[in-house]
């Protein structure tokens, strides 16, 4: 039963992902992306990663996609089909061909290597307190990875300052020259 669900959701996720690329309007792209994220999070649930599924919904669907939507609405992009002519259109269609070729190549390579057992993959060993236990994640995060965890806070602060520096308008009284 789980396997049927898995394959159905995987196929759906791929369809949604295709929709992201093929959709004419950016709004449809974002909604397709949302669908793809939902399918992925259900796959995580099937695999027993409850925390990751929740984080996927909260972080990607909840925060990042809303930002995308805001940006699209603010920029008022409208229909981008006008861009698909001329040089840019040619570039897009070449890019699509290359993308399909690369996807097929990676798929074939994975299929062959998995079937031949070349990758030596083993099923994941479950953690002492069960797979995806919150205790396990917390122990790693606040234990041996405390340094990068704390450094991320400096990183976020620096990112914020960087964005403010770049986005803030020029203060009055200074000349704006170009070179």
């Amino acid at each position: 039963m789980a396997e049927v669900f898995f394959y159905a959701l995987s196929a759906l996720a791929v369809l949604f992902a295709l929709g992201v690329v093929l959709a004419k309007s950016p709004m449809m792209s974002v909604l397709n992306l949302l669908g793809s994220f939902f399918c992925l999070s259900v796959i995580y649930l099937l695999a027993g990663f409850q925390f990751m599924a929740a984080a996927q919904i909260l972080v990607y669907a909840g925060a990042i996609l809303v930002l995308f939507l805001f940006v699209i609405m603010l920029l008022n992009l409208g229909d981008i089909s006008a861009h698909s002519t001329g040089f840019l259109g040619a570039l897009r269609s070449t890019g699509a061909k290359i993308g399909v070729a690369v996807a097929v190549a990676i798929g074939l390579a994975l299929l062959i290597s998995v079937n031949l057992g070349m990758l030596g993959l083993k099923p994941a060993e479950s953690l002492p307190d069960g797979i995806d236990g919150m205790t396990g994640i917390a122990t790693e995060l606040f234990g041996r990875y405390a340094l990068p965890f704390e450094a991320v806070s400096v990183l976020l602060l620096a990112t914020m300052v960087a964005v403010v520096v770049l986005a803030k308008r020029q203060r009055p009284g200074t000349d704006a020259r170009k070179s």
Binding site: Y145, P148, A151, V152, L155, A158, T159, V161, A162, L166
Partner: peptide, 16 residues
């Protein structure tokens, strides 16, 4: 992981 966070702490200020 430690290296990657360090790399980003270095890179993002430099981009700006």
């Amino acid at each position: 992981l430690v290296f990657f966070v360090g790399l980003e702490v270095l890179s993002i200020p430099l981009y700006a």
